[in-house]
């Protein structure tokens, strides 16, 4: 993938803001939780879905497709709008999100045709599943890549570190861990609950080629993800420094927005903040 031009980055930034608004709308309309942890994902998902992932909604079961695994399942209100925008999720299914009789829940269930590769919601599963997919890809000599999107709080689950050992032992350079490092877990600051630092050193010690990026700077994200795999024979880790609630001033870095849904006034205020940017 060639480097993105300035104009292309500007288009991506506009797309990101549209999808940020779609995410806000989806959560507000359905009175759903998890807005904070969804908003920290927007630029990373924009880079992945509009620049990096080799996927096509016309052939969702293509054996050679890149796999995107959302391990932090609670962030799915950000993912569904991307899948809708890319043509995987049709309007009537999208509109049934979090409704009685609908298809889409507040944590995703595996549905390949809708572009949902794994069931998640119970944390600490994605990296192991991704390792299995990457291993199958190596075995079958296919060139797809597996991107696993993890929350930082999720890394407190020990199974991630089992998977981290496994992936480097088996030299899975077709596997990428993306850490959404927004420094907050459900209701508290990570460093106050169970500190992860030094996070990059941990991944390097586990044998992963690791890079850190500003998770809201599309130019930086795209240029780093273009270099995957960072090193032949090693899995890649992208630690993306993000802000929970990003883009809506009163939600940024505020733990209560993990599961709080905006009321009408807050929604209007949020819309006004985003309006100038879309």
């Amino acid at each position: 993938m060639p480097l993105a031009t300035k104009e292309e980055i500007q288009i991506l930034e506009k797309t990101a803001q549209e999808l940020r608004r779609d995410t806000l709308d989806l959560i507000y309309k359905t009175k759903s939780p998890h807005i904070g942890c969804s908003l920290s994902m927007i630029e990373l998902l924009t880079a992945l879905y509009f620049r990096i992932l080799r996927i096509n909604s016309e052939s969702p079961r293509d054996e050679n497709r890149d796999r995107f695994l959302l391990s932090k399942g609670h962030g799915v209100p950000a993912l569904y709008p991307f899948l809708a925008k890319k043509g995987f999720i049709k309007k009537e299914i999208f509109d049934g999100y979090a409704q009685d009789g609908g298809t889409l829940e507040q944590h995703p269930t595996r549905n390949i045709d809708l572009g949902i590769e794994i069931t998640s919601g119970s944390l600490g599963h994605g990296l192991s599943i991704g390792s299995g997919m990457a291993l199958a890809g190596k075995h079958d000599k296919k060139d797809y890549r597996v991107f696993v999107y993890l929350g930082d709080g999720e890394l407190q689950e020990g199974s991630n570190w089992e998977a981290a050992m496994f992936a480097s032992h088996h030299k899975l350079d077709n596997l990428v861990a993306i850490i959404d490092h927004n420094k907050l877990q459900a209701m508290q600051r990570i460093e106050e609950v169970l500190d992860l630092n030094p996070l990059a050193d941990k991944w390097r010690a586990f044998g992963w080629e690791t890079k850190e990026v500003n998770g809201h700077d599309l130019n930086e994200i795209v240029s780093v993800m273009n270099k995957i795999p960072f090193k032949k024979g090693k899995p890649s880790c992208v630690i993306a420094h993000t802000v929970k609630g990003k883009g809506i001033s009163f939600m940024e870095n505020e733990p209560r927005w993990h599961d709080r849904c905006p009321d009408e006034n807050e929604y209007q205020q949020a819309l006004n903040e985003l309006k100038g940017l879309c």
Partner: peptide
């Protein structure tokens, strides 16, 4: 030998590596 894998003392990882393989047609 490539299809026989000792995952080490890590059963949770074993089950989900198996899941990833099964999702890939194995």
């Amino acid at each position: 030998p490539e299809r026989v894998i000792d995952v080490g003392v890590a059963e949770a990882n074993m089950i989900d590596v198996a899941s990833g393989l099964a999702m890939s047609g194995k």
